[in-house]
């Protein structure tokens, strides 16, 4: 078992005929992910270059293929609508890769998403991978290895860095989730931590945060009370100046809130093993689990 992405996941790709969508669909198929179809309005009835059936709508795709998960590669202007479509089709999981969705679009739909049965990962995220089972997203699969550490992170390449360190240490991953770098996301740290805390196949959790918002503090408060599994944490942006956006739309210290220091303090207070040197993430988890 793993979290969210399992052997039972049947995936469709929204935006399967676009450049990014098409490329990453092939990558997902190469990793033997159970991708069952694609959605591109106007191209229903055709086959994608990967040989997958294309549908005009998500509801059509679900009806024909029995899909229960979707990955969204559509451009920012149409992304909120694509999310609404996926959620309305009652999928279990929607992974939104798209970067650059206006915040007001997300603010308008997030209540609807949270009141549904669908778990949304992202937007502006690398996706989710359960090594050996499949990947929904854009991460390089080969650095992963099946194992018993769960990873949660707001960024892409920094997640790969942590995964790579774990793999080098001989530890693998149960599931790695890139939750996204935007100010409004579907699955914040707290919700992801709960999933791993309850997963019998996860022994330890790596929680990577960054400046901006209070997501990490909320997760830390929960960990302090409820989580017995060891958690290793890192916060990116200890050297970031206040008031400046550091690449991710959500990575900004505003009004003195969301600093790396306050997050690291909250995490230490919760008993999380906080590393200041990002090269120590893998080592630290190894030394804890090795005991």
């Amino acid at each position: 078992m793993a979290v969210l992405l399992t052997e039972k996941s049947k995936i469709i790709v929204q935006g399967v005929t676009g450049k990014e969508g098409s490329f990453h669909t092939q990558q997902m198929l190469d990793y033997k992910t159970n991708v069952v179809g694609g959605v591109t309005p106007g191209k229903g009835g055709q086959k994608s270059e990967h040989g997958l059936p294309i549908f005009n709508t998500v509801i059509d795709a679900v009806g024909e293929t029995g899909a229960n998960a979707s990955v969204i590669f559509v451009p920012p202007a149409f992304a909120a609508d694509a999310i609404m479509e996926a959620v309305s089709a009652e999928l279990d999981l929607v992974v939104v890769i798209t970067e650059g969705i206006p915040v007001s679009d997300m603010a308008r739909i997030i209540g609807f998403v949270r009141n549904s049965k669908t778990v949304m990962i992202g937007p502006n995220c690398p996706g989710i991978i359960t090594p050996g089972v499949g990947k929904i997203g854009i991460m390089p699969a080969f650095i992963h290895k099946p194992g018993r550490v769960g990873i949660i992170s707001r960024s892409g390449t920094l997640t790969y860095e942590a995964v790579d360190q774990l793999t080098q240490e001989g530890l693998g991953q149960s599931t790695a989730i890139g939750i996204g770098g935007d100010p409004i996301i579907g699955l914040p740290h707290l919700a992801a931590v709960k999933l791993f805390a309850e997963d019998p196949d996860t022994d330890g959790i790596i929680m990577i945060g960054e400046i901006g918002g209070t997501n990490e503090e909320e997760a830390a408060a929960y960990i302090k009370k409820h989580v017995k599994k060891p958690v290793v944490g890192f916060i990116a942006g200890q050297t970031a100046p206040p008031g400046r956006r550091m690449g991710h739309a959500g990575a900004i210290i505003s009004g003195g809130a969301g600093t790396a220091t306050s997050k690291m303090e909250a995490m230490r207070d919760a008993g999380i093993h906080v590393v200041e040197n990002p090269s120590d993430i893998g080592k630290t988890m190894k030394s804890i689990l090795g005991k």
Partner: peptide, 17 residues
């Protein structure tokens, strides 16, 4: 010079470290 925002911040942090 780094690829990805999170890794770019982490790189800044490790230089200070």
């Amino acid at each position: 010079m780094v690829n990805g925002a999170g890794l770019a911040m982490a790189t800044m942090d490790i230089i200070k470290y």
